[in-house]
C-alpha cells in the first residue's frame, strides 16, 4: 500500500508543477514527472513478490516459469507509452521554442499580456 502511495505522491508533485508554475519549461517538466509516475504505478500493479522478468530461459519448464514471472501486459503497454511520451515532449518543446521566439519569454503570464 505504501508503495502505491509513493507513486501517487510523485504524480502529485508533477501536478503541482503543472498547475502552479508560470514557466513553460517547468510545466513541461511537470508533465514528464506525471508520465513517469503513471508508468511506475502500472509496473507496480504488475509486480509479484520475488518475481522475475518475463523472459523464458532455456531449460526452465513452463509451469515453473508461470509461478515466478511478473505480469508482462503492463510492461508491454508502458514500453509504448514511454516512447510516445518522448515524441510528445519533442512536440511540447517545439511549441515552447516557437513561443519563446515570438514573445522572448517562457513566462505564460507575460505571454498572455503581450497578446493584443
Amino acid at each position: 500500500m505504501l508503495t502505491y502511495l509513493l507513486a501517487f505522491i510523485l504524480f502529485a508533485v508533477g501536478l503541482y508543477s503543472v498547475i502552479n508554475k508560470r514557466n513553460l519549461i517547468k510545466i513541461i517538466m511537470g508533465v514528464i514527472i506525471m508520465e513517469h509516475a503513471v508508468n511506475a504505478f502500472l509496473i507496480l500493479v504488475g509486480y509479484r513478490m520475488s518475481g522475475e522478468a518475463p523472459i523464458v530461459e532455456e531449460g526452465v519448464s513452463i509451469s515453473e516459469f508461470l509461478s515466478t514471472a511478473v505480469d508482462p501486459l503492463p510492461q508491454a503497454l508502458v514500453i509504448t507509452s514511454i516512447v510516445i511520451s518522448l515524441g510528445v515532449v519533442a512536440l511540447m518543446v517545439g511549441l515552447a521554442i516557437r513561443l519563446y521566439q515570438h514573445y522572448g519569454t517562457f513566462d505564460i503570464t507575460e505571454i498572455r499580456k503581450l497578446r493584443g
Partner: peptide, 11 residues
C-alpha cells in the same frame, strides 16, 4: 530473445 526491442534500439 533478450531484453530490448525496437523502441530502445531506435532511440
Amino acid at each position: 530473445l533478450t531484453p530490448g526491442g525496437g523502441f530502445p534500439g531506435g532511440v
